[in-house]
Nucleic acid binder design. Sequence first.
DNA 1: ACAAAACATTGAACAAGTTCAATAAATGAA
DNA 2: TTCATTTATTGAACTTGTTCAATGTTTTGT
Lengths: 210, 210
Amino acid sequence: MNVAYIARGETLGSKPSNMTELLRQNILNHITLSDEELESFCNLFNQKEVRKKNFLIREGEICKFEGFVTKGLFRVYHVDNNGFEQVLYFAQESWWITDIDSFTTEKPSCLYIQALEDSEVLLISKKDKDFAYNNIPKIEKLFRIMTQKTHIALQRRMIDNLSKTADQRYIDFIEKYPTLFQRLTNVQIAAYLGISHEFLSKIRRKIASK
Amino acid sequence: MNVAYIARGETLGSKPSNMTELLRQNILNHITLSDEELESFCNLFNQKEVRKKNFLIREGEICKFEGFVTKGLFRVYHVDNNGFEQVLYFAQESWWITDIDSFTTEKPSCLYIQALEDSEVLLISKKDKDFAYNNIPKIEKLFRIMTQKTHIALQRRMIDNLSKTADQRYIDFIEKYPTLFQRLTNVQIAAYLGISHEFLSKIRRKIASK
DNA sequence: ACAAAACATTGAACAAGTTCAATAAATGAA
DNA sequence: TTCATTTATTGAACTTGTTCAATGTTTTGT
C-alpha cells in the first residue's frame, strides 16, 4: 500500500498524528481498519487553512475535494433566484463537507461553502478518493455507511420541515445542536430553518416572554 | 458463491429471469457485475405481492427488508402529531423502497409504506444484504453509489422546499415526474409538496386560468 | 479608539398557506 | 345498478410568515 502511495507522488512518511487525530477517531467510529490502512488513507489528505468569510467553493465551480473539518466552522448554502440564502448544513469540528453532487458528477456546483470562523480542513481529491476506493476495500464501506447516516439525518429534517412550525423547528435546533447554536448568528440559523431573520427575532421574543 | 447460497436455505436454482429482469438492469446501470455475481445477488430477493391500500410496513414496526418495485406504486410517508401525512417519496417501477433509518438501526420505524396500486416488490432481508456485503464486494459499491444518488436528490428537494413557492414546486413536480404525476391523486401530491390539498386545488385553478 | 459594517429588534402592511364547511364529481364495492 | 366512499373544488375567515423601513447594538478592521 505504501508503494502505491509513494508512487502517487505524495510526500514520504506520515503526517504528524495530531493533524489527523480527529480524522482517525472519526473513521474508527464507523468501521475498523488496520493501522496500515488507516495510515495510508489518512496520508491522502492535505491540510488547508481557511480564514473567516473565505470560501472553499463558490457556485459555478466544480467541487474537487471532500473535506473533514479539524477546526472552526463552515456553512454550506445555496443562493436562490431572489438572492436569498438557504443553509443546507453547518459543519464544525469532525464534520465532513463537500458538494457531493458536484463532486461525483464533476459538474459546476450550485452551492457555496464558506468559513464562518478561522478554520482548518483536511482535503482529499477525487483522484485520491477513487484510489482509496480501489485499493482499500473498507473505504467503500466507510463512505457507504457515512452517506447512509447523513441521508437518514436529511430525511428526518425533511419530515420536520414539512410537519413542524418554525417555532418548533427553532426549539428543536437549539436542543439538537446546543453548542453549535452558540457559534451561529440568528441570520445563519434563520437561513437553516427556512425563515426570515426578522421572523426568527419575533419567535425569540415570544419564547422569551414565556 | 452458489454453495453459500444453497447453504442459506434458499430455493435451489435461479428465479425466472423475467422476475428479476428490471432489477438486473437497475444494478447494471450503477456498477458492472459478472453474471455469477449478478445471479447470486438477485437470488437473495423474494417476490411479494402487495394489493392496493395494503402496507409493507407501518409506524412502530421494525423495517426488516429493502425492496425493489417491479410493478405498481408505493408511497412512503409519515404521520405527524396532528394526524397530517407527509410523503417522503413515491416509488414506482425500478425504484427502491425501505425505511433506511429503521432498517439500519433496527429500531421501530416512524414511517408507513403503502401500495397505491396493486403492486409487486422484490425483497431482500437485512441478513441476506449483510451476506451480500461480505461476499460480493461490489455490492458495497452499489449501495454506496445508490445512497449517494438518493441523497443528492433529497438535497435538491430540501433546497427547493426552502427556496421555492408552492406554485413553483407543483410545476416542477409535473415537469420532473410527468408519468408518475398521472398516477397520483391531488391529495398525494399535496402531501409530497407539503401543502393542504385545498390549497393545491387553488394553485391548479390559478395555473389553468393562464 | 474610531468608523464602518454586520447584527438584532420592532411595527405595520402584506402575501402565502390553512382551516372549516359546503357541494359536486368520480370511484369502488356489493 | 346503487349506495357509500373517496376525491376535487370553492369561499370566507384565519394563521403563519414576509417585506420594508426605522432604530439601536455589537463586531470588526485599521
